[in-house]
Amino acid sequence: MTRKLLRALVFVSLAFWFLLVVVPVVWLVYSSFKTNEAIFADPWRPPLSPAEVSVDNYARAWSKSHVGGYFLNSVVTVSSALFGTLLLSAMAAYGLARLRVKGRRVIYYLFVAGMIVPTALTLAPLFELLRSLSLLNSLTGLALVYVAFSIPFSLLMLYGFFSSLPEEVREAAIVDGATEWQTFWHVFLPMARPGLVTVAIFNFLGLWNEYLLALVTLIEPEKQTLQLGIANMVVSMNYRSDWGTLLATMVLAMLPVLVLYAALHKRVVEGMILGAVKG
């Protein structure tokens, strides 16, 4: 009897936390479809009839508040950084795991040491470096920084992957006359696909949500990413209370992550756990 009661109480607590998580997110999504007047009149009320649903916030955000630009900047920067990270980490992981050369362990540790570097320590020198390379205010500059900061962890994961694959595969390919690069590209990379997907998801989540490095690198409004755009809109709410636009922008920033999470839940969880345990 007491056991049953206890289990019921535990379930209630689980349901309570469920609501605590879901309600704000649901509120955010439906409120983004309300007009500013409706938000002010009653911030809680969901739009119940089709007449109350309005996509004005999205239209206004996209055209008037640079959000279309922010979104594209984020997409361009993150996708190119992701591509660069995967390619370069896989190359380094293959070289370090498969080509037995003197001093490779030192280089491996040099790479992995990057995981403990706090972003804050690099901000000032990074700013000066980017300025002297004319990469300040440039999405290319930010993407390169993202690649460099993503390599240590990605390399660690892929190194484990490439080390676990049998050496006979490589020898067979070499005996067949394949160059080292062909062996890497046509044999090892396809075999490492599950590892690459996990690394890609992990990095996507981190980079899409990244704020501090973008804050230091991108100064002009036209160049900014979604996260910078949202943070600046929060400040501008003080003199221009256009909550609708802000809510719509937040939904847009959340959308890619939500889609990825819903579609690949298992892989996301796997990536995050590996990230915590190894990092």
């Binding site: 380094a92 080509l99 790479f111 020198p125 990074l126 470096l129 460099a148």
Partner: peptide, 20 residues
């Protein structure tokens, strides 16, 4: 294989760390 990644990592992560 290792040169290009080391170059990007060295310039944009390792160098700012040491300079920091």
């Amino acid at each position: 294989f290792v040169g290009p990644p080391l170059l990007v990592y060295g310039v944009f992560c390792l160098y700012p760390t040491v300079a920091g």
